[in-house]
Amino acid sequence: MAFFQELLGPAWPVVWGLVKIVAIVAPLMVGVAYLTYAERKIIGYMQVRIGPNRVGPLGLLQPIADGLKLLFKEIIIPSGANKFLFVLGPVLTIAPALAAWAVVPFSPDLVLGNVDAGLLYIMAITSMGVYGIVMAGWSTNSKYAFLGSLRSAAQIVSYEIAMGFALVGVLMAAQSLNLVDIVRGQQGGLFHWYWLPLLPMFVVYLISGVAEINRSPFDVAEGESEIVAGFHVEYSGMAFAVFFLAEYANMILVATLTSIMFLGGWGPLFEFAPFTWIPGFVWLMFKIAFVLFLFLWFRATFPRYRYDQIMRLGWKVFIPITLVWLLVVGAAMQTRYAYLFH
């Protein structure tokens, strides 16, 4: 490393930063590819099917075949579309999904940018994701796409509030906006993680997370049965694939954030011998995989919500729950039971 440092001179920090970014994004993309495979396999087994099993052993090369297929498809731009925004849509969808990873810690030292306002940064960046969808839907100049983007915008704005309040609970418990400090505050195993003292917020965050990424049962933005595919109805080839990548990258992101905020991050399940042998990074992967499995399970289990029910759940159920629990946490911290909350 010292050799490269000497070789590149002043350019070294830039190059080293890029190397670290690639080291996060490349495994993420592989994760996205195999998440689609896992989704098809798991939902397949839940529905007593086998799922993809033709390409490669156990169908393991299926995501690669899908990617190649999309790569070679033509990108069709509708003649009535606003060309610039039509192309910008997918870009603006995937950019926040990747940018948010800059502050995500994988272990105490393994983090690209250990910033103090990490939690705020995550909230700000993930709230940008909706622009890609809105732009895609509007610029397509099609009624189905437009309806999809309207639904998506309303839904994401509604659930962001509940999500934000849930995170306020986390920062009250951790007394820090720094993600590394938030994980440090949860040391001590299963019963010290924030999911227990902040149980209502954990549930709200998990469900709002599903709504934020437009996953089933909140996937009215692409409701196949009434508006065909929603905002990406006219997208084809790689432009469509980028939307797809963004959706799955967002799934992994929300799963990672849930693991970090409520499930103890890289901390082991229990703080004694066989559990502490497993490195922290592997624990984090386990937790992410667990939350992702929940997402897939939801999709296989629940029917799609009706639109007014989505709005009711977000505004009339989740926001009051989080507000009440904020009061409970704030009040309890002034009593002798404060130790329960951090």
Binding site: I125, S127, M128, V130
Partner: peptide, 14 residues
């Protein structure tokens, strides 16, 4: 960050 969160993330979307 609050500017981005509130104005870009919510107000401008509406």
């Amino acid at each position: 960050i609050t500017l981005v969160l509130v104005y870009v993330g919510a107000v401008m979307v509406l």
